[in-house]
Design a protein around this nucleic acid. Structure first.
Lengths: 110, 110
DNA sequence: ATAATATATCAGCAAGTAGTGATATGATAA
DNA sequence: TTATCATATCACTACTTGCTGATATATTAT
C-alpha cells in the first residue's frame, strides 16, 4: 500500500458508531448505565427525558452496539455492552479536560 | 452525592466533542493526519473532498480541540492535537471489531 | 375477560448540518 | 504593481435528526 493511500474502509460504520456518543441525551442515558443496568422506566425517571425519547435513543445505542437489552417480564433491562464503552468515555473525559475550554467556545455547531 | 444523582455536567460539551468523530469526512481527514501533519491542499488531494468542505470540517475539528493549525506562509499545516486523539480512534476500532456487524446493519440513522 | 403497566413505534415538526459554487482574504511570485 | 496560489467564508439547498403526542404491542394483575 502506497504512503498516500488512505484506508477508508469502514469510515461510514465508524462515524455511525461515534454518533452514538454525540448527543447529550444519549450520553446522559449511558451515564445512568455506567453504574448498573436499568430498566427503561428507571432511565426515564433518572434522566427526566420522555419515554418515547428514551426508547428511541436506546434503539440507537443498541444499533451502535453500545448497550445491550434483556427482556425481563414486561420490563427491559439495559446495560453497557462492554467495559470499553466506559473506557472510551473516560478517555474522552481525559482529553476534554485539556481542550474543554476550546470546545466550550466553539459555536460552529451550537 | 446520592446514588441516583446523575453528573450531567458538561454533557453538552462532551457531545460536541464526540460530534467531531461522527462524520465520515472528518474521520477521513483525521485518518490523513494520523501519520503526519499536512496542509489543507494536501488533505484535499488525499481525501478527494472539496476545498471548502475540508476547510469547514477542519474548522469544526479545531473547535472540538481535535486538531491544531499552524500557519506557514500561505499554507496552513494541520496536525492531531494530542496522542489521545489517535488513542481514542484506536479504542473505537477495537470496540467496533466486535460490534461492527450490528452497527453495519443499524439502519436507524442511515 | 378487562384493566393496568412497560416498552416500542409512528407521523410530523423544528432545528441542525454536510455539501456545493461563488467569493473574499491573505501571502508569495513575477 | 499585477498575477497566482492557499485558505477561509458566504449563501443556499437537500438531507438528517431529536423531540413530542398519539398509538400499538406485549406482559402481568384482578
Amino acid at each position: 500500500m502506497l504512503p498516500l493511500t488512505l484506508d477508508t474502509t469502514g469510515l461510514e460504520v465508524k462515524a455511525k458508531f461515534f454518533r452514538g456518543f454525540s448527543d447529550p441525551s444519549r450520553l446522559k442515558i449511558m451515564e445512568s448505565l455506567r453504574e448498573t443496568p436499568r430498566t427503561v422506566s428507571e432511565i426515564v425517571e433518572i434522566t427526566g427525558l420522555s419515554q418515547p425519547n428514551v426508547s428511541n435513543h436506546l434503539g440507537c445505542l443498541r444499533g451502535c452496539g453500545l448497550v445491550r437489552a434483556k427482556k425481563r417480564g414486561r420490563y427491559v433491562s439495559y446495560r453497557l455492552s462492554d467495559d470499553r464503552v466506559a473506557d472510551l468515555l473516560a478517555l474522552a473525559e481525559s482529553l476534554l479536560a485539556d481542550v474543554a475550554r476550546g470546545v466550550y467556545q466553539c459555536t460552529r455547531y451550537a
